[in-house]
Amino acid sequence: MKELTIKEAELLGIKMKNHQMDNGEKRFRLIQDSGSSYICTVSSDESGWQNSHVHNKKKEVYLVEKGCILVAKFMNDKVEIQKLYPDEMVSMSIGVPHNIYMCANTVLHTIKYGTSEEDWNACVELDEKLILINLSSYM
C-alpha cells in the first residue's frame, strides 16, 4: 500500500482544511472539487451550539463516534430536538434549518454532498429560538 502525500491528493481534487473554531472545536476537513466533504469535529471541554444554518442544495449526514450531540431542526415554525449517542446518525433534508449542540468531549463525523456551490446560509431565527430552550430536559 502506497501512502499518498497531501500534494498528490490535491492533484486528485481533494484538499485538506483544518481549523480551531472560536468555541474551541477542532474541525478537520477533506474537501473534494465536487463540493462534497468529510469533517471530523472534536469538541472542546465545554458544550455549546454551533451556528444555525440551512443548505438549499447540499445534503448532510451526522454520525456520533464519541459523546453526544443535540440536533435541532426548525420545521413548520417549531423546533424539534433529538439527542444522538455513539453510533447514531441523522440525515438533514435540503431546506431544513438546523443546528448541532456539541456536548463536551464529543467526536462527530459529518458528510456533505450534493453540489460544488457554496451552500451554507445562516438561520438567525433558529439561533434566537434555541436561546430560549431549557437544555436540562435533554441532558
Results as ranks from 00 to 15, higher is better:
residue 126 L to E: 01
residue 95 G to I: 03
residue 68 C to I: 02
residue 101 Y to L: 01
residue 129 K to S: 05
residue 4 L to Q: 07
residue 25 E to A: 10
residue 55 H to M: 08
residue 73 K to T: 14
residue 123 C to Y: 08
residue 33 D to K: 12
residue 88 E to P: 07
residue 104 A to V: 02
residue 44 S to V: 09
residue 63 L to E: 07
residue 26 K to R: 11
residue 116 S to P: 07
residue 96 V to Q: 01
residue 35 G to I: 06
residue 6 I to Y: 09
residue 106 T to N: 02
residue 114 G to K: 01
residue 139 M to V: 11
residue 81 I to F: 08
residue 122 A to E: 12
residue 67 G to R: 09
residue 92 M to T: 03
residue 46 E to P: 00
residue 70 L to W: 06
residue 68 C to A: 15
residue 125 E to Y: 00
residue 79 V to F: 02
residue 20 Q to T: 15
residue 86 P to D: 10
residue 49 W to S: 11
residue 126 L to P: 03
residue 58 K to P: 02
residue 29 R to V: 07
residue 53 H to V: 07
residue 62 Y to D: 09
residue 60 E to L: 02
residue 78 K to I: 00
residue 91 S to A: 13
residue 134 N to E: 10
residue 52 S to E: 07
residue 89 M to D: 08
residue 37 S to D: 08
residue 75 M to P: 00
residue 57 K to C: 02
residue 10 E to P: 03
residue 108 L to E: 04
residue 56 N to A: 05
residue 70 L to H: 10
residue 95 G to Q: 07
residue 129 K to G: 04
residue 114 G to S: 10
residue 78 K to Q: 11
residue 17 K to W: 06
residue 6 I to S: 10
residue 25 E to F: 12
residue 28 F to P: 01
residue 31 I to K: 06
residue 25 E to G: 03
residue 80 E to A: 00
residue 54 V to P: 01
